[in-house]
């Protein structure tokens, strides 16, 4: 379930301009949102500790995995502060990612007051071009089309893969309303994708069913998550890497079940 981060800590109760507990809460907001938009764990830890270092705190301890963030530090008067956050879900939103990255750089460089920091985070971003429906249709179509060309499909296969990818787009809109969990969503999207690929193949669009299917699977399968998880483990974030690794395998399993149902009903891989 995606948690809304609309309820940010309002700075009106802050004791002074540099109230450490509010600074900490805002830094955690940045970290939490960075994980939500798909930043690497090591980058999140790095930017959070840089921000806190800029304020001159001591004993900064940052721990971050893809579902949990915790920070503890000692302020200039020798008082210790600890706060933690549970992070739900993750997506990829590189526009917001870029903004958060630049916010964290600005904070490390300029040490803003609580209010300025809060305003930086609350500043409304203009609606991106990528959120419009025609652009989304174009994006999913080119995604499926490109992958099918990449896997040496014919032009007909590629068009079929692009059309089947549009079904996945509809599925992605659906799941946001239902707030279902990742595994259920993967199985559901795979089920729809499998049917649409089979039906398009049946109507004579494309000649390689396996290529059409694998191009659409590439849109869903967490291959990147698997690679990133091994990268995380190699750079020392073993727990974060393991979590992501297990999740990737579980989602892939759900996908396989989702695709297996239409194939079974149709009568084996054609």
């Amino acid at each position: 379930m995606l948690k809304k981060i609309a309820t940010r800590v309002d700075p009106k109760f802050a004791k002074n301009d540099y109230d450490p507990s509010y600074i900490l809460a805002l830094v955690l907001d940045v970290g939490e949102e960075m994980i939500l938009v798909g930043a690497e764990v090591s980058r999140v830890e790095d930017s959070m500790s840089r921000m806190l270092e800029a304020y001159g705190y001591h004993k900064i301890n940052v721990f971050c995995i893809s579902e949990y963030v915790s920070i503890s530090f000692m302020d200039t008067q020798g008082k210790t502060f600890t706060q933690s956050r549970r992070v739900f879900g993750s997506t990829n939103d590189f526009l917001r990612f870029e903004e958060l990255n630049s916010i964290s750089r600005t904070v490390s460089a300029t040490k803003p007051t609580v209010k300025e920091f809060w305003e930086m985070l609350e500043k409304n971003t203009p609606n991106s071009y990528a959120q419009t429906i025609p652009m989304q249709i174009f994006a999913y179509f080119t995604g499926g089309f490109g992958f099918c060309l990449f896997f040496n499909g014919t032009l007909g296969d590629s068009v079929a893969a692009g059309l089947a990818a549009l079904v996945l787009m509809v599925a992605s809109k659906f799941s946001k309303i239902q707030n279902s969990n990742k595994m259920v969503y993967a199985a559901f999207a795979a089920f729809l994708g499998g049917w649409s690929a089979l039906i398009l193949y049946h109507f004579g669009l494309g000649v390689h069913l396996d290529k059409i299917m694998i191009s659409d699977i590439m849109l869903l399968v967490p291959g990147m998550a698997l690679t990133i998880s091994i990268r995380d483990m190699l750079t020392g974030d073993i727990i974060a890497g393991l979590l992501r690794f297990l999740e990737a395998i579980m989602v892939a399993g759900a996908l396989a079940i989702g695709y297996a149902i239409p194939i079974y009903i149709w009568g084996g891989m054609v």
């Binding site: 991106s128 990528a130 179509f141 995604g143 490109g146």
Partner: peptide
């Protein structure tokens, strides 16, 4: 194919 798939994915990921 990799080129256009990359562009398609970047739009899905809301890249500038």
């Amino acid at each position: 194919g990799a080129f256009i798939a990359g562009i398609g994915f970047s739009i899905i990921y809301n890249t500038r």
